[in-house]
Design a protein around this nucleic acid. Structure first.
Lengths: 198, 198, 198, 198
DNA sequence: AATGAATGAGGGTTCATTCAT
DNA sequence: GATGAATGAACCCTCATTCAT
């Protein structure tokens, strides 16, 4: 009565359809709550929004980082894939870098609190760093290398450092009208440029 | 109510010496705890470190912001006074700005978590913004204006924005060897520069 | 989200039996503690008595007033229903009023501190007034009206005032042998009577 | 140098003028605070109002009850003395009792929270009962006895009980427009009356 | 597999009371 | 004799996490 062949390998999916639906509801809810209350929102709030019990979240995502990773996986992947594409299409490596950083900023500023947690030293977020930064840092590094190779930029920071810097500039931006994260990032990117290029 | 003739002007502090000593112990303890646990450290931890009861902290510093302000007051003041001095002494306004930003970074990176709380939107820290930013933003603005006047920099961010940006770059720096806040700030400041000046 | 077909109508309580038992333990514990320590007893004391954690109380009864209301709900309801019954059965409206007031006194004197909190102006008990007084005042008013109609009583206080008065006479009665709340209430009710009736 | 003859009995008053002034300021302050915040007001509030340190209150009035007693001593005394006077002047013992109760009510309703603390079982207020009730109960008893003797009232409560009852009716009256303590006390006193007196 | 009730540690805050000056 | 700083127990409440159903 519990799926046909549970004898052989019960790893198959007798009711995975149900579980998957639940998981997606969870991701949607988490995404929504993250926007309004940040990625530190109480577990209860997310569970309530998804219409599930709190323990269900723990089953699917043992740690908060797991949840955050899952919520933003698609967007991180898209970002990672955009790097080579920009490099191939763009007028110059430096321009491609600039465009890519812009996309990164777009990602960060629309995720309330994500930038903050990305820079956290908290051990619980170790997997976040693994999933996000380890995926994106090489992409950024490739862009930086290309721009260095074309002599457009001078002594550059490491890709990790640059990304954390951009992340920090976007962190806690809130909606303070006196603070425009994009403008500062623009200045930072401008600061990479070889000064004599004018 | 304090004895008849308060002629010698010591009428107000018969025992304040004791209290003041205690207050200083409190400031030392808070400073120490802030370094290790950040400015959000539990009140109890600070009290324990200072060897006093928790209520003693509340007596001296009704709100957490009051305590933070007191802990860093001297350094903020020194920073504020350094601005005009650098402008007067330095080779150029832009150089003075760069130097002053360096001092600001020195201040931030040695205070664990201060940069983070400085950018907090939390209402409880309103007085922090008042005390710190309102004191420093005009100083920074003066430096920016001077650099603009000497045509050394191009379209600049507002002083508030620049300081928040620098603050963010320093926030959560931890001791990650892959992240050097000073270098990024240097790049940011470089990005202010008029590109053709090469 | 709770299984596919909720046809059998048991979909909402798979485990509520356990929770309900706990809730009742809580009500019993609260009632017991209220008797000994008054309705202002520390939450911890009630939790300890019930053998549960403090947060469990907050789950079931978000505010203290909610708990008090729950503890006494049954008795209040019985009291409310007794009014019309007494009026229908009794020899006269005034006699019914007297009997009903006796029941009210019975209720109050066995609940240590309840009378006190019922008269509290504290905003946190607003819902108490709603639940208790708003339920009972109309019943009392009906009895008063009937007695007025039968010319047994002279200028009467409002039902609210009378009930508060009775409540006050019962408040803080403790077990002082020199103070008999019932006797005083009897005198108060006698004072309502038309004097010429002798 | 410290008063003349401190050898013999040092109980004399070298600076009693100062102390007395202080004590009176304390009483005034306490009276004022009692009106606004009730007799449970924080010690600090009273000290602040009087412009003295908290410990000064403890010196003069070791317990809160001592302070309350002192604050209202004059009025209690006047009340006590009014009893025989009314009995001598009034048209009848029952009328005198009614008048005296009115005075008692006047006293209670103008002292925020006093009635409440008067009925408290709290051991800390034992001396309050001693000072106030032991002084007034005999006076009330005399009035009750006289009225009993003149056959104006029927089976009466004890003087203590009657006073506590009146006190309770006045307790927590607040400024609720739906509750008039005086009216209820009037009804209570009416209830004492011999019913056949028409 | 999902639920959501229970947990209990932990934080902020207040206030009566004591004690060194 | 007066001061007011220090104390620390006590309270309320929140939230991540576990566990019985």
């Amino acid at each position: 009565m519990n799926g046909g062949e549970r004898g052989v390998e019960r790893a198959t999916r007798p009711k995975r359809a149900d579980a998957r639906r639940n998981q997606e509801a969870l991701l949607d809810a988490a995404a929504a709550v993250f926007v309004t209350s940040g990625v530190d929102a109480p577990v209860r709030a997310i569970a309530a929004r998804a219409g599930v019990g709190t323990a269900t979240i723990y089953r699917h995502f043992p740690t908060r980082a797991d949840l955050i990773v899952a919520v933003y996986r698609h967007q991180v992947e898209a970002l990672a894939e955009a790097g080579p594409a920009l490099l191939a299409d763009g007028p110059s490596p430096y321009a491609a870098l600039g465009r890519w950083i812009d996309l990164f900023v777009d990602f960060l500023v629309t995720k309330h609190g994500l930038a903050t947690v990305l820079q956290s030293e908290d051990d619980r977020f170790a997997s976040l760093h693994s999933s996000f930064l380890e995926r994106l840092v090489p992409v950024c590094a490739e862009l930086l290398d290309a721009a260095t190779g074309s002599a457009e930029i001078r002594s550059a920071p490491g890709a990790y450092e640059l990304m954390r810097g951009v992340g920090n500039l976007c962190a806690g931006a809130g909606d303070d009208p006196r603070y425009d994260a994009r403008r500062l990032v623009g200045i930072l990117v401008a600061g990479l440029r070889r000064p004599s290029s004018g």
